[in-house]
Design a protein around this nucleic acid. Structure first.
Lengths: 347, 347
DNA sequence: TAGGTCATGAGGCACGTACCTCACAGAGTG
DNA sequence: CACTCTGTGAGGTACGTGCCTCATGACCTA
C-alpha cells in the first residue's frame, strides 16, 4: 500500500482497476445503465465496497450539464404553516443556485389530490430529478408517487408521510411525541389540575390523530388530576375554531387549559382576546406562524410546538440532493426536532 | 438577450466578457491575488454585480486538487457539552468527505489559552482553509485569531464569540434569550411563587453572565412572586455543584425551584436524588447531555435548554465552506435555535 | 536608453464524474 | 457464412473554476 492509496480518496478509476473492468463498465453500473452482465456488475459492486469508494457528489453534479432540479408540491390556500414552507423554499432558491440546485415551487388546491396526481404524472424525468410532496394519504396520490418513481423521479414526502408508497424518504416530526410533549407541558403548568379542552382540525388527518393519541395517553398516565374536554373538531379553519373557543369559554368557565393540535389559531387567539380570557388559562398550540406568534407576544398563548418548517426544507433538500446524486439507498438527514416556543425564545 | 443568457447561470467567462477584461484578471480579483489595479478590480466587481454572477461552489471545490480542510479547536476535559460537540464533528467527518470536506478535530486543555494560541499560530495556511474555535475571550486568543486571519486562514467562532477579533463569523445562540426563556418557564411552573435558586459556572464566563442577566431581568419583570437565591458559582464542576445543591436543600427547605445555567449537572442530579428531593421542585438546566438526559428521564430535571450542538456543527461547517469558497463576505446560516427539552421530546 | 517592475492578456492543465461514440469479441440465428 | 445482438473496452469531451506559465506593453528609474 503506497502513500497515494492512503491519502487520496478512491475514484472511479480505482474501482475499475480493482474490479478488473473498464471505466465504462464501472460507469454503467454506477448509473444503472444497461449493458452489463449481472456477474460483472457484482464484481464492480464488490470492488466498490472493498476499496470504500464513494462518489464525489461535487464532481457528479459538475459533470451533468444541467443543475439538479427539485420540484416542491405544497398545498395552497389559507394555511399559514404551508405558506411558511413555501416561503422557505423560495427563500432558499437563490442560495441553492450556487450549489447547482434549482428549486421549483408548485402549489395545488388543498385536497385536490387528483390535480396533484396529474401534475406528478406529467413531470418530465429529464427536466426534474426529484419531487418533494406534502400530501395526504389518498389512493390516487400513492399511485402517482409510484408512477413517478418508476419513471425515474425520486420522490420524497415532507411533513406527512405516505408509508405505503415508493417514496424514497420521509422528512418530518414524530407527531405522537409532539402530543406527549404538549401533555407534559400542560401538566406542569397546571399542578392543581382541572379541565383542559382539546381542539383538532380533523381526527381523520394522520398528524392530528397521532398528536391526540400522544396527548391523551401522556396526560392520563402522568397527570390524572387533569380532565380532558373533547377533542372538538375545528377543521383547521379560523372561524370554526373561534366558534368552538367562544362556546367552550361560555359553557365551561372553570376551564384552565386549552390545547389546539390543529391549525386555525387566528380564531383561537381572537376568541380568547375578545372574551377577555387571554392569559387566564394555559394555552398550547402548534406551528409558529403569524397568529401563534402574535398570540405568544400578547400572552394569549403560552407555548407553541413547532416542526420548524425551514429546517424541514433544509433537510429535505439535502436528502434529495444526496439521493439524486446516488449517494446510497437512503440519505442521512438530521432529525427534525420539535421546537418549543415561548414568548422569550421566538426566532 | 438570447436564450442562453436567460437559462444559463453566469460563469467567470461571462464576467470577463462583461467587464472587458481577461479571464486571468477576473480570477485574480475573485481570489484576491495581487496584480490588479484598483480601477480594474472595480470594473470586475461592477460586472459581477451587474450580471449577477455567483461562483459555482462545486466547481470551485473541484478545481483545487485537495479537499477543503476545516480544523476544529474544542476544549478537552470533563465537560459533556464539549464532548457532544466533538462527537458531532467526528460523526460528520466521513459524510463530509463525499462533499470534499475534510474535518480535523483538535482538543486542548480548558483554559489553556496559550496552548490554543500556539496551535492556531502553527496552522499552515496551505494545509488548512478554516479554523473553527470554541474559546473564551482572552487577549492571547484574540491575537492568535487575528494572526491566523492575516495568514489567510478563515476563522469562525462557535458557541462563544470573540467580538473584538477578525473572526469572519459566529455560530451560536443568544444567551440572554436563553436566560429569559428559563425565567419564563420557571414562572409558569410556579404560579404560586416562592424561592428559586440560581447556580452558575462562573459569572466571568460571557455565556453564563448573559444567561443570568436574561433570567433575572425576565423574572423580575414578569413574575414578582418569585424570589431569587443566588447566583451561586459551581465552576462547572460536578462535585462543587453537588455541594451547593446539598447546602441549598438543607438550609432552605422552602425552595421551590432551581436553575443551573452552567454545567456540572451530574452533581446537580445526584444531589437531588440522594436528598430525596427529585421531583419535589422545578429544575431547569442547560445542555442536553448524559446527566441532564438521565435527570429528565428520572424526573429530577423538568426542562433542559439546549443549544443543539449537532446543529451548531452543521451550520458552522456550512458557513466555513461558503466562506472558504469565497461565496461572499459572510455566509448565510440558519439561526441556531434554543431547544427546549422535556422528558417527552428527547431526541 | 537600458533594465526593472507592474498590470494584464492568452492559454493550458487539472479536478472526478457523466455521457457520448466507436470498436471489437463472442454468441446466437438464419 | 454473413448477420445481428450483447457485453465490454478505449478514448474523448464537457462541466466551471483554480492555478500555473509565458508574453506584452506601459511606466518608472538610474
Amino acid at each position: 500500500m503506497n502513500d497515494e492509496s492512503i491519502k487520496r480518496r478512491a475514484t472511479v478509476h480505482d474501482v475499475a482497476r480493482a474490479a478488473g473492468v473498464s471505466l465504462a463498465t464501472v460507469d454503467r453500473v454506477l448509473n444503472g445503465r444497461p449493458g452489463v452482465r449481472a456477474a460483472t456488475a457484482e464484481k464492480v459492486e464488490e470492488a466498490i465496497a472493498r476499496i470504500g469508494f464513494t462518489r464525489d457528489l461535487n464532481a457528479s453534479l459538475m459533470a451533468r450539464a444541467r443543475d439538479l432540479r427539485l420540484v416542491f408540491f405544497i398545498p395552497d390556500g389559507t394555511n399559514e404553516f404551508m405558506e411558511s414552507l413555501a416561503a422557505s423554499v423560495l427563500r432558499r432558491a437563490p442560495l441553492a443556485l450556487s450549489d447547482r440546485l434549482s428549486l421549483e415551487l408548485r402549489r395545488f388546491r388543498p385536497f385536490d389530490t387528483q390535480g396533484l396526481a396529474r401534475e406528478l404524472s406529467e413531470l418530465d424525468p429529464r427536466a426534474c430529478d426529484s419531487a418533494i410532496v406534502v400530501a395526504s394519504e389518498e389512493p390516487e396520490v400513492l399511485a402517482a408517487v409510484d408512477a413517478a418513481n418508476r419513471r425515474g423521479i425520486i420522490v420524497l414526502t415532507l411533513v406527512s408521510d405516505l408509508p405505503g408508497s415508493t417514496r424514497r424518504q420521509f422528512v418530518g416530526i414524530d407527531n405522537v411525541a409532539a402530543g406527549r410533549t404538549a401533555a407534559s407541558l400542560m401538566g406542569r403548568f397546571l399542578p392543581q389540575g382541572g379541565q383542559v379542552a382539546v381542539i383538532a382540525g380533523s381526527l381523520h388527518l394522520r398528524d392530528h390523530l397521532e398528536r391526540w393519541e400522544g396527548f391523551s395517553a401522556a396526560l392520563g398516565a402522568e397527570f390524572p388530576a387533569i380532565e380532558i374536554v373533547g377533542p372538538l373538531e375545528g377543521h383547521d379553519e379560523r372561524n370554526q375554531t373561534a366558534e368552538i373557543v367562544y362556546r367552550l369559554l361560555k359553557e365551561r368557565p372553570e376551564l384552565v387549559g386549552l390545547y389546539n393540535l390543529g391549525a386555525g389559531n387566528g380564531g383561537l387567539v381572537t376568541a380568547l382576546e375578545t372574551s377577555g380570557k387571554a392569559g387566564g388559562l394555559r394555552v398550547v398550540a402548534h406551528e409558529l406562524t403569524a397568529p401563534t406568534r402574535a398570540g405568544l407576544i400578547a400572552g394569549a398563548i403560552d407555548v407553541v410546538l413547532d416542526q420548524n418548517p425551514d429546517g424541514e426544507i433544509r433537510e429535505v433538500i439535502r436528502a434529495a440532493r444526496a439521493l439524486a446524486l446516488g449517494a446510497g439507498r437512503e440519505a442521512e438527514t438530521d432529525p427534525i426536532e420539535i421546537g418549543i416556543f415561548l414568548r422569550d425564545n421566538l426566532r
